[in-house]
Amino acid sequence: MSESIMTMASSTNHRKWKYDVFLNFRGEDTRNNFTGHLHNYLLRSGINIFRDNEKLKKGEEISPALLTAIGESRFSLVIFSRNYVSSTWCLNELVEILQSVKSKGHLMHPIFYDVDPSDLRYQKGNLEAEVDKHEKRFQSNLEIVQKWRNALTEAANLSGWHLGNG
């Protein structure tokens, strides 16, 4: 996996990117384990990474800053974990990442960390309950929930890396 990431990050394109990689992940699930180790490895390899807790300026609104960082990144690593779907931040970022893939030549690579891609694809298992919670919470704006559903399906259909916890 690491050689593929470094090759993609170092590939050239006519556009100048501020970041090589945007990391999209559920902090409480992976910040202090898998994502933390991946982040450190990429940094040691000379890859310029955007990770939310380091590059945001204090007092800056989180959502616009994250959306901007996605557009300024060459590609995204999306780390799907057990509680990923419970985060509206993660889901909004995922929608933006996939839009950037279509409109800006952005690349996205999923990592299924202790999650079955078919559960994401069909929003079943534990993920079904989380999506149901979003539908209740956003019942006046079910369009956003449908965008999240579509993004999860689209991302789960991509070839990615499958990793177990540990």
Rank of each mutant, 00 (worst) to 15 (best):
M1L: 14
S2T: 05
S4L: 10
M6Y: 01
M8I: 05
M8C: 13
N13C: 13
Y19R: 04
V21G: 07
F22C: 01
N24V: 00
N24L: 08
N24F: 02
G27D: 09
G27E: 04
G27I: 05
E28M: 07
E28S: 12
D29V: 04
D29C: 11
T30C: 12
T30V: 04
R31P: 02
R31I: 05
N32E: 03
F34Y: 15
T35I: 02
G36P: 01
N40H: 11
Y41Q: 03
L42T: 03
L42I: 01
L43A: 04
R44A: 14
I49E: 07
R51Q: 14
E54Y: 14
L56H: 07
G59W: 12
E60A: 11
E60F: 08
E60Y: 12
E60V: 02
E61Y: 09
P64V: 06
L66N: 00
L67V: 00
T68E: 03
A69Y: 04
I70A: 09
I70H: 10
G71M: 03
R74I: 02
F75Q: 01
S76K: 02
L77P: 07
L77G: 06
V78P: 02
V78K: 12
F80K: 06
Y84N: 00
Y84H: 08
V85S: 09
S86I: 03
S87K: 12
W89S: 01
C90T: 01
L91H: 12
E93Y: 05
V95C: 10
V95N: 10
V95S: 10
I97P: 09
L98A: 09
Q99K: 14
S100N: 15
S103G: 06
S103D: 08
K104Y: 11
L107Y: 01
L107G: 15
P110Y: 01
P110D: 00
P110T: 01
I111C: 12
I111N: 09
Y113G: 02
D116P: 05
D116Y: 04
S118G: 08
D119F: 09
Y122C: 04
Q123Y: 11
K124N: 09
K124S: 15
N126Y: 07
L127Y: 15
A129I: 02
A129S: 05
E130I: 05
E130Q: 15
V131S: 07
E135F: 06
K136W: 07
R137G: 12
F138W: 05
N141K: 15
L142I: 08
E143N: 14
I144G: 09
I144E: 14
V145A: 10
Q146W: 05
K147W: 06
A155I: 02
A156D: 01
A156M: 01
N157Q: 09
G160P: 02
G160Q: 03
W161N: 04
H162Q: 11
G164K: 13
G164L: 11
